[in-house]
Amino acid sequence: MGPLMQRLNFERAGFRTLIAKTARRLPFKIDPPSFQKAFEEIDPRWSDQDYWGILKNNARAQTPYYLLTALDLRQAPDGSIAAAPPDQGIFKAIYLRTFWMAAVVTLVALVLAYPLAYLLARLPARTSNLLMILVLLPFWTSLLVRTAAWIVLLQNGGLINRLLIQIGLIDAPMQLVFNRLGVYIAMVHIMLPFMILPLYSVMKGISPTYMRAAVSLGCHPLRSFWAVYFPQTLPGIGAGCLLVFITAIGYYITPALLGGPKDQMISYFIAFYTNGTINWGLAGALAAMLLLATLILYAVYSRLSGSTRLGVA
Rank of each mutant, 00 (worst) to 15 (best):
Q6V: 13
N9C: 10
F10K: 12
G14H: 10
R16Y: 11
I19D: 09
R25L: 13
F28R: 01
F28V: 15
D31Q: 14
P33Q: 12
F35D: 03
A38P: 01
F39V: 14
E40Y: 03
P44T: 14
D50R: 12
Y51D: 05
L67Q: 08
T69W: 03
L73E: 02
D78Y: 09
I94V: 14
M101W: 00
L107M: 13
P124K: 12
A125L: 08
A125S: 12
W140S: 10
T141N: 12
T147E: 02
A149R: 05
L154V: 08
Q155Y: 07
N156S: 15
I160F: 07
L169M: 12
L169D: 08
A172L: 13
Q175I: 12
R180L: 06
R180G: 02
V188Y: 02
H189Q: 09
I196Y: 02
S201W: 04
K204S: 11
S216Y: 12
L217N: 12
G218I: 07
A227I: 04
V228T: 09
F230L: 15
F230V: 05
F230Q: 10
L234M: 08
A239M: 08
I246W: 00
L258N: 05
G260Q: 11
Q264F: 03
M265W: 02
F269L: 08
I270S: 03
I270D: 01
G276P: 05
N279A: 13
N279I: 15
A285L: 04
A285I: 08
L286W: 04
L291T: 07
R309H: 01
G311N: 03
